[in-house]
Design a protein around this nucleic acid. Sequence first.
DNA 1: TCCGATAGCTAGGATTACTACCTATGCACT
DNA 2: AGTGCATAGGTAGTAATCCTAGCTATCGGA
Lengths: 114, 114
Amino acid sequence: MKAEAQALKGHLDVLLLATLRDGPRHGYAIKETLRDGSGGRFDLPTGTIYPALHRLERAGLITGTWSTVDGRRRRSYRLTTKGQRHLASERGNWRQFAAAVTALLEPTPWPATP
Amino acid sequence: MKAEAQALKGHLDVLLLATLRDGPRHGYAIKETLRDGSGGRFDLPTGTIYPALHRLERAGLITGTWSTVDGRRRRSYRLTTKGQRHLASERGNWRQFAAAVTALLEPTPWPATP
DNA sequence: TCCGATAGCTAGGATTACTACCTATGCACT
DNA sequence: AGTGCATAGGTAGTAATCCTAGCTATCGGA
């Protein structure tokens, strides 16, 4: 398994929710938003995306509706109210997590906190 | 399982290596360094620490040596050359990962990039 | 006609952090 | 003397989740 793989653990859900911030999207579009929004870094296989979306839907954070566009079945997902709240709180959580990791990795004792 | 738990996945190894940056430490001291260095955020159980250290040793990133201090057995770990290289590259990796996640989470289109 | 992009899906494997438990020493308090 | 806590090490088994590998299907272009 790639090293990159494990790094996402626990953060994928927030990222998926974030892609729905500006309106509903279907799975494949979410995948592309994630890829493009990360500069190609998070180019996840559909085998990662779809199960994760089902998980989020089961958790009541997103809801999906079927539609057909050009003969292609699409399932559009949007954030529920619960999902919006969750996104907001997880965003704060990420900031703290990232700050803690960074602090441990780069112990630059600030060049003088005035 | 706690949400916090999954968040660490894939990042624990780097954090453990980082605690050895300034010299050898034994497992319990590593646990404390992690706890204190993260403001109490990463207060990991020994059942997480020790297996992870064994994993890192198997991978050749750290080496441990037994000693006895005050009747207590201690296993002191230090970074190998390979481990130092790994830490350096993973630190860069973390920066990029964190930047990508942050970019996706907070789409603040900078207030004007001059 | 075949291939790639789009669009959706599942089963099973691999990894990893956790819970829960165990042993043992030294010290402080009762 | 006995109890509990911090220190110090460890294991077995479980849960979570992301991946690989595979599947179906439509549409447009080479």
